[in-house]
Amino acid sequence: MAQGTATRVSAAIREAQPASARAGRGLRSVLFSVGDGMFLLTVGVVAAACMRLVDSLGWNSVLAWIIGMGLAMLLQTILAFAAAPLLGSIETMVPSMVVAMTCPMVLDFLEMIGVNLGWSWSVALGAGFGFAMFMFVEGYGVLCRKSFRRAGVPR
């Protein structure tokens, strides 16, 4: 019943907006998605490169992990601040922080168990992390919008 009302309300809101405004919003969200995707790919590549660089120094793997991850997170914070005016502060900071933490961790773990990926594969893995996070954010965003819309009836 509540869901039906919510659907009717959002349909009414959609109808009340001119088509050009809706198209403008659609374009905006596509552009922001492209921006988010490119940003997360960059952070993934940078994080992987940091870890690879530290691993190549041949230090103890726990020390390498701490330094590699610390460096990756420092660069991620700088990149996030740089991209924030365009993409939003929380929107850049939160998912990229997860990428900068997990990607070096996985690379260091692989190194520890004797899997040395080399530069190109490490960087590709970093880009993969960025892309996976982008897909997760997109999917989770859809779920969140749906769950709030279903739970609350706008009046």
């Binding site: 939003g88 929380i90 929107e91 939160v94 954010v137 989770y140 965003g141 969140c144 919008r145 769950s147 709030f148 819309r149 739970a151 609350g152 009836v153 706008p154 009046r155």
Partner: peptide
């Protein structure tokens, strides 16, 4: 009393009425 919540970014940035 909360009337509605809309997601502006995931479940992190919210518009609450």
């Amino acid at each position: 009393r909360i009337m509605s919540i809309e997601s502006a970014y995931l479940d992190i940035v919210l518009a609450i009425r």
